[in-house]
Write a protein that binds this DNA or RNA. Structure first.
Lengths: 111, 111
DNA sequence: TTGACAAATGAATAAATGCTCATATATTCA
DNA sequence: TGAATATATGAGCATTTATTCATTTGTCAA
């Protein structure tokens, strides 16, 4: 069962979602809802990579990558480590890798 | 390992993503990247529900719900069954429920 | 047939999003 | 110090997205 059963004002028990939880889930999924961020995550899932290396690997501007990394930072999906002029990013949540695996299963069985 | 290793033009083996796969993953996640759709999915994960009942449960207009259901239909996330004037929707993929579970784990450990 | 109900859809609009460009900040090295 | 490199960030712009409103389609019941 995904959702807890709550009791509405009508005093009628019904199976329902938690509105705030729905918002948080949507927020998490929207962090993954962009091909550039998916590519970034796929790379930093294996090892930590600094920004300009990510730019080279993805063939995108530093600004674009930094903006996307900010999204991932804000949502606590990545952690980073500063070393000199470099900032190394790495995936900070095993759940994200699991989500990717599940999503890969879906697109394999769908397409 | 999430991604297959491919060989680039430089003939240097490197760990990389599949660009098309990244796009498909992003597409899937964006289907879940909205609170209304998350709420719909949470409801029809348990049992099939017709459109106007969804509207009542979510307190939203029929048009808004139908538009969102179209997104879920197009991405093959839901299946539906017509019965008289009603159309009953139901979740059509176990992977989606698994994704939700994983995502719930994430937000529990993050917030 | 007519009217009521259920659902889908197209156009319009406001808000969010992803990128570029320019610039700011910070660190290293000569 | 000054130049070069690495990263972050704000503004602007084009595109996408979620909703509303109006309309259409389809089914049931009188």
């Amino acid at each position: 069962m995904l959702w807890k059963t709550i009791r509405a004002e009508t005093d009628t028990a019904r199976n329902d979602f938690d509105l705030e939880t729905a918002g948080r889930l949507a927020e998490l999924f929207s962090a993954l809802a962009d091909a550039t961020r998916v590519r970034i995550i796929s790379l930093i899932a294996e090892r930590e990579i600094c920004v300009h290396e990510l730019c080279a690997m993805l063939g995108m501007t530093q600004s674009a990558i930094s903006h996307q990394l900010r999204v991932l930072r804000d949502r606590r999906i990545v952690r980073y480590r500063k070393q000199g002029r470099h900032v190394y990013y790495q995936l900070d949540d095993e759940h994200i890798s699991e989500l990717f695996r599940g999503a890969l299963d879906h697109i394999k069985h769908t397409h």
